[in-house]
Simulated assay, not measured.
Amino acid sequence: MKLGDIALEYGCELRGDPDHAVTRVATLAAAEPDAVAFLANPAYRGQLAATRAGAVILTERDADASPVAALVTANPYLVYARLAARLHPLPAVAPGISPAAVLAADCELPASCAVAAGAVIDSGARLGERVQVGPNACIGRDVRIGDDSRLLAGVCVAAGSRIGARCVLHQGVVIGSDGFGNARTENGEWVKVPQLGAVRIGDDVEIGANTTIDRGAIDDTVIEDGVRLDNQIQVGHNVRIGAHTAIAALTGISGSTTIGRYCMIGGQVGFAGHLEIADHVVISGGTAVTHSIRRPGVYGGPASGPDEVSRWRRNAVRYQQLDDMAKRLRRLEKWAAQAQAGED
């Protein structure tokens, strides 16, 4: 693809030869003249001077330092993502059903679907066009899966779940397992609460490996359009995650919590149940969210609960000063006691 065409298609200012062609993307350090690299993180600015890339996608601030052609844009990472998808497209679906797959007689799937060895598709399941079902994946009774979705090896989608179009479920994802609902008797024994809802996943959702999303207790658990879930996330029953929210690995979301749209949640965040998180909230990694967050903003904090991140950072610095402050306080108390005794 010629640099001039890239600049035109992705709205960049090109500083270099418009006829130079590239075929792939690469890092600044490893790129050759046939590759495009990008610079979005200042930590890698030191690699720019020595790059051999055919072009670098970067901001106006770094453009003059580029020794090769520059594709100047306000958002280099976004342009890189779109160009990488263009230069490295996924293989087209190779339609067909492995003879080692097990399909119920009344499941429905178009001829354009691909079903790998060991996959199981249960009664009443209905797949859209060009759906890919990976090895040993299990599609439960009455499941619906939209066009162009991909379920990789070992994915399990339990009965009644709904998955939209163009979704990606990575290895080991479990959709629609029972939520953790138990009632306790007077004797301290547990009685399982039937989990009667399902899971509804919108379009263009990506779910990382070994993430689990529980079915609702009565109403459904809902993942709206464009959500991004990292690996090993636990989503409890009746949780709702708003459109275009991204959540990093090892986060746990307790039942009936609602997370708004366009949120960004760091890794290892823990949410208590029955909370409401506003749209456009950012939560730092490792935060224990114990109460609802009603206003957009950046929040973070340890097990004491989330706080506005600027105040939390100030308090984190002060924590390191607590011992010195305690000693000064004792000296002041001693001085005050001595002064009081002198007055008496």
Rank of each mutant, 00 (worst) to 15 (best):
A7Q: 06
C12W: 11
R15G: 05
D17R: 02
H20G: 04
A29P: 04
A31D: 06
V36D: 05
V36T: 07
L39P: 04
A40P: 01
A43F: 12
A49R: 11
A50Y: 09
T51P: 06
V56E: 03
P67T: 05
P67S: 02
V68F: 05
V68W: 10
A70M: 00
N75C: 03
A81G: 12
A85W: 00
H88T: 00
A92D: 15
A92K: 14
A94E: 15
G96S: 04
P99Y: 07
A100C: 10
A101D: 05
A104K: 05
A111M: 07
A114P: 01
A116V: 07
A117G: 14
V120A: 09
R126G: 01
L127P: 04
N136L: 14
N136T: 07
A137T: 12
D142E: 12
D147L: 04
C156Q: 15
G160I: 06
I163H: 08
G172T: 03
I175D: 10
G176I: 09
D178R: 00
F180Y: 13
N182D: 15
R184T: 14
N187S: 15
G188I: 03
K192S: 12
I201H: 02
G202T: 05
D204L: 00
V205R: 03
E206L: 08
G208K: 02
A209H: 06
N210R: 12
D220R: 01
V227I: 11
Q232L: 15
G236S: 00
H237A: 04
R240Q: 14
G242C: 03
H244K: 05
T245I: 04
A248E: 00
G252I: 08
I253V: 11
I253L: 02
S254I: 08
S256F: 07
R261E: 14
C263T: 09
I265D: 04
G267V: 10
V269A: 10
I277R: 00
A278H: 11
A278M: 08
T287G: 02
R294Q: 14
G300L: 04
G300S: 07
G301K: 01
P302H: 09
G305W: 03
D307Q: 15
E308I: 13
V309Q: 13
W312C: 10
R314A: 14
A316Q: 13
A316K: 01
R318C: 00
A326V: 14
L329F: 08
W335K: 15
A341T: 12
D344T: 15
